[in-house]
């Protein structure tokens, strides 16, 4: 309830609506406050109009432009000469039938499965360990800070960092493996080579982002009522049974939300790809968003890039709708909405 909806005591306003001497000072009167703010009838029009114009300029116009060009053969030349031809659904057919797109979708799936899922699994396990196993509060805080630190770095910096660490000849990672005796001193693992490039991206991303699901699940675990765990102790349930039958089912929704957040990030994952592998070698670590970026900004195949963007947008819209429906059901089940 905002302030002006609050019922005013009888003495504050007289019959004509003027402020009268009463328990509240003058500035609680609706009329006075209204007059003092709206000096000129243009003020509200300008205050609403400017943001609307900005949104039209940076969101609505480019979107309409993109949809228009998705159905034209626009490229760098035709953009300059301003003679593009309508080609119907050709751009979409081109994208959907290309191996490059199919590969990138497979890369994305692999990245989601081993990147986002692994982060959520690891985060959940770490949160559980942090809560159940670590007894000292001070140690718990220190560990939390240490684990959250990578999240504070810009993703592109993390990309550069890992590119250095994973260098085949003088990278720290190979050096570590050699020191540990897991690799012969003359051997090299080509981390950024065609076979491993996507896995290297996944390693770097897991390193950076595992702390987010960890934080979310940990805070969920902390908020579970302790009395339930005491009841389980009195009932004689083992730790494993408590975890399986009580803790995990109660954290189910929170884990799902952590996954949704990681999924949304993963779906638009482009920064580390750009910095670490540039989609290569031989397009073996490309993701759809990265191809759209390449096509549109690098090669100026505007029509094809627009088709990519629309396909990505439609899939994202469908997935987000499903997620929102799930969230709504969860909230309803918990009596929140």
């Amino acid at each position: 309830m905002s302030v002006d909806q609050l019922p005013l005591p009888a003495a504050a306003l007289d019959d004509a609506g003027r402020a009268a001497a009463g328990p509240y000072p003058d500035w609680f009167s609706k009329r006075r406050r209204g007059r003092s703010l709206i000096v000129n009838p243009l003020v509200p029009a300008v205050m609403v109009g400017l943001p609307v114009l900005v949104i039209i300029a940076i969101v609505i116009y480019p979107t309409v432009w993109m949809f228009y060009h998705a159905f034209h053969d626009t490229n760098m030349m035709s953009l300059f000469t301003r003679n593009w031809q309508a080609v119907g659904w050709d751009n979409f057919a081109l994208v959907l039938s290309s191996d490059r797109f199919a590969d990138s979708v497979l890369h994305l799936l692999r990245y989601l499965l081993f990147g986002a899922c692994l982060q959520v699994l690891l985060g959940t396990a770490l949160a559980q360990i942090l809560y159940e196993v670590v007894q000292s509060n001070a140690l718990r805080i220190v560990l939390l800070i240490v684990m959250v630190l990578p999240m504070m770095l810009p993703p592109s910096i993390v990309g550069v960092l890992w590119k250095f660490l994973l260098q085949a000849d003088n990278g720290a990672f190979n050096h570590l493996l050699i020191k540990l005796g897991m690799l012969a001193p003359t051997d090299r693992i080509e981390w950024l080579d065609a076979d491993l490039a996507l896995w290297s991206l996944i390693i770097a991303d897991v390193w950076q982002w595992t702390a987010l699901p960890l934080l979310i699940v940990y805070s969920g675990r902390v908020s579970l009522p302790p009395a339930i765990y005491e009841a389980a102790r009195v009932d004689g349930a083992s730790r494993w049974l408590v975890l399986r039958r009580i803790t995990l089912p109660m954290l189910k929704e929170i884990i799902a939300i952590a996954f949704i957040i990681r999924f949304m990030d993963a779906y638009k994952f482009v920064d580390k790809v750009y910095v670490m592998t540039a989609g290569g070698p031989a397009q073996r670590s490309e993701l759809p968003v990265f191809i759209a970026f390449q096509k549109g900004i690098r090669e100026f195949q505007v029509g094809e890039a627009a088709a990519y963007a629309i396909i990505i947008f439609v899939v994202a819209a469908i997935l987000i709708t499903l997620f929102l429906q799930y969230l709504k059901r969860v909230l309803k089940a918990q009596g929140i909405a």
Binding site: P225, A227, I228, E230, A231, R233, G236, I246, P249
Partner: peptide, 20 residues
């Protein structure tokens, strides 16, 4: 001894029912 070994049963002020 643990509560289980003592074989006690308890009803809690806050009920402490398993919500799921």
């Amino acid at each position: 001894l643990t509560p289980e070994q003592r074989n006690v049963a308890m009803a809690f002020e806050t009920y402490a029912l398993y919500p799921n």
